[in-house]
């Protein structure tokens, strides 16, 4: 199967069906919106949501790290769903996972959900919005108007998805959204994340992922 790639500022980025981006020349793996600890937060608020999302998200990320052995992992914001303060279990889980991949440098952009991250200061190399990297800006929030000349950038935050219809059938799939030459938004990587349906618009390209392959739509 041929890889689906997009070109951004003369860099080639491969879109992975596992909802991640592989930037081969920089040996960098990128994901966005993990929202770790979400089910736990819901439970503390009295909503009976079973655990499993955090472990599943980290497990899938481990698989990617082992598959690509990146020199650097970039997390494009919203690593946590909420301040981990009361969730000791989450901190232990995360620390154990980090030590398993101790050899891989991990860079994190701070997202709007990443509050009270002091306990995580040691685990990731935290940066603010727009951190430059080989000519690309690493962001959590996409620019206000992604279609205009703002690029080149990579971002998350939107949790994009697309709805495919045909013959009375309909499916909703996570998606990448590209503004050619300007920027790329990654789908949410977390296992318990909602999604926002993106409709077709001029100047933008959507790539759905079925988990097994990438489907270019526009």
């Amino acid at each position: 199967m041929t890889a689906t790639t997009v070109e951004l500022a003369e860099h080639t980025l491969e879109l992975l069906p596992a909802r991640a981006v592989w930037w081969a020349e920089q040996a960098t793996l990128l994901v966005a919106d993990l929202h770790l600890g979400k089910a736990g937060l819901f439970r503390r608020a009295g909503l009976a949501i079973p655990e499993g999302d955090t472990a599943d998200t980290l497990r899938r990320l481990s698989i990617l790290i082992e598959q690509f052995t990146p020199e650097r992992l970039v997390l494009l914001g919203d690593i946590l769903h909420a301040a981990p303060g009361a969730d000791g279990g989450l901190m232990r889980q995360l620390a154990a996972w980090r030590s398993r991949h101790a050899a891989t440098p991990m860079l994190a952009i701070r997202g709007n959900h990443d509050r009270g991250i002091e306990p995580l200061a040691e685990l990731f190399d935290w940066h603010l919005e727009g951190m430059p990297s080989a000519g690309l800006a690493l962001r959590h929030h996409p620019p206000r108007d992604p279609g205009t000349a703002t690029g080149p950038w990579l971002a998350g935050h939107w949790h994009p998805a697309v709805r495919l219809r045909g013959g009375g059938d309909s499916l909703r799939l996570p998606a990448f959204v590209e503004w050619p030459g300007q920027g790329l938004i990654l789908p949410a990587f977390g296992s318990m994340t909602g999604a926002h349906t993106i409709t077709a618009r001029p100047g933008q390209r959507r790539y759905a992922t079925s988990g097994e392959r990438i489907i270019g739509l526009d």
Binding site: F42, A45, L47, I49, G194
Partner: peptide, 21 residues
């Protein structure tokens, strides 16, 4: 807001991690 989730997402999460619910 961080406690908002659609019933669909909750359904998926429970189906996956607590299928006997």
């Amino acid at each position: 807001r961080q406690l908002q989730a659609s019933s669909g997402l909750i359904f998926d999460t429970i189906s996956r991690y607590d299928p006997d619910n």
